[in-house]
Amino acid sequence: MQRSTSPLNRTKAGAAVVIAGLLLTGCASAEATPEHVTDEATTVRVAVQAIADFAPIWLGLEQGFFTDAGIDLQIVEGGASSAAQIPLLLSKSADIAATTAAAALQASASGLEVKIVAGLTDFATNASADQSGLLVAVGSDIKGFADLEGKTVAISGLKSVSEAVISAAVDAAGGDSSKVSFIQGPMPTLGDMVVTGGAQATFLIDPFLTLATKSGLEVLGRPFADVAPGVPGTSLVASTEYAAANPGVIKKFREALKLSAAFANENPDRVNKALSAEAKVPLEMLEGTTVPKFVSVVDPQRLEVEAAMLRKYGALEGTGDTSNLVVPE
């Protein structure tokens, strides 16, 4: 997930660069797009997004883990959102793309032929490690999740895992989530919506969250840690065709990613340096931010927990088993 920089004025310039870097580039030319249909293929084109969730890929390249595994990893620019990554796979403009697990679930439920081949992040299992949170203005009369009843919450995507989890947190606290209104906007502008009164709360992920707390907002709570600890965040997805044709390549890719994820978890300072370089964001803007927990696989059982929550709150159609969405090890 979608992974995948303040919401307030002093960060807008840097954030605009990040957003610009995420724009969909379209299909590559015939010359730049090699065929990948057998296990002998070692070139893997991965569609990126300039978010911290992607740090294991950057650091794995830097450390040579993919090269050592026999993978010639080539980075291609990704779409402007998690949902926009999926068309890159189906058009064969990329072999693997980073997207939220929720977006992969929604794509599969809508009949698109995709498979989750690896993980990148899981949401935190406790508040102290959580890089996300629900924020309100300092001095707000909203003191708990139940107080969101009758209020407007700004989020980066409607019918998303964030909307589902916030709704679940409201219900768990004794409120009525059906009386919460959600509005959508780009992540860098969500904090501004609270400051100007367009919304009474917002859901942010670091570094936006930390930047917002320096600019007049405070953390109300950590809904993911409270009601959906450890559910999959950002995953790596391939088309069903590519996954079926290249099991050996996917195995080697996973082996390298496992080393990369471990390295990223052990070196959080390197994560921020990589994000700063790739997203063209000054390193000082990332000081004090919480980096994600990196993983290399997606747990099908936790994915089903996430799917059930998405279904309950109207963000996922169907009731089928999701375990076959993940390519087994």
Rank of each mutant, 00 (worst) to 15 (best):
A245F: 12
T99V: 15
G248C: 05
A98K: 06
L283H: 10
E329T: 08
D141W: 03
T240E: 15
A28D: 00
K312T: 10
P34I: 11
T43N: 14
P56C: 03
K143D: 09
E113G: 07
S215M: 07
K12H: 15
Q49L: 14
A16P: 00
P87Q: 06
E62L: 00
I116Q: 07
P229S: 03
S160F: 00
A118P: 02
T290W: 07
T289M: 11
K143N: 04
K312P: 09
A261F: 01
V281H: 01
P268K: 06
G248T: 01
K179A: 13
P232D: 14
I116W: 05
L158D: 11
L59F: 07
F65V: 05
S4P: 12
K273W: 06
V326L: 08
G230P: 09
I75E: 00
G111E: 10
L59H: 09
Q74A: 15
F203Q: 01
V161G: 05
S177V: 00
R45Y: 10
I142S: 04
A262E: 12
A307I: 04
L303P: 06
S91N: 13
L112R: 12
A137D: 03
S167K: 11
P56T: 01
A52T: 09
Q85C: 10
E149R: 01
A32D: 14
G64P: 13
A104H: 07
S93F: 06
K280V: 07
I51M: 15
A225G: 11
G288F: 02
T121E: 06
A109S: 10
L257Q: 00
G144T: 01
G320Q: 14
L59Q: 04
Y242I: 11
N324V: 11
A154S: 14
L283D: 02
A102S: 15
P232W: 11
Q85K: 13
I51T: 14
N265C: 07
V138W: 01
E77G: 14
A55C: 09
I250D: 02
T38M: 12
Q301R: 12
S82T: 06
T67Q: 15
V298Q: 00
S140P: 03
L316Y: 12
S156G: 14
N9A: 13
Q2F: 07
G150F: 12
A315V: 02
G248F: 03
V138L: 04
D122C: 08
I57M: 03
L73A: 03
E255T: 14
V44M: 05
K312R: 15
E163N: 03
T125H: 10
T290L: 14
T125A: 13
S82K: 10
V281Q: 07
V76P: 09
K258G: 06
S4C: 13
D130G: 04
S235W: 00
L90C: 01
D147L: 07
A124F: 03
C27L: 12
F224H: 13
E40K: 11
G233K: 09
A277H: 03
S162E: 11
A52R: 01
T289W: 00
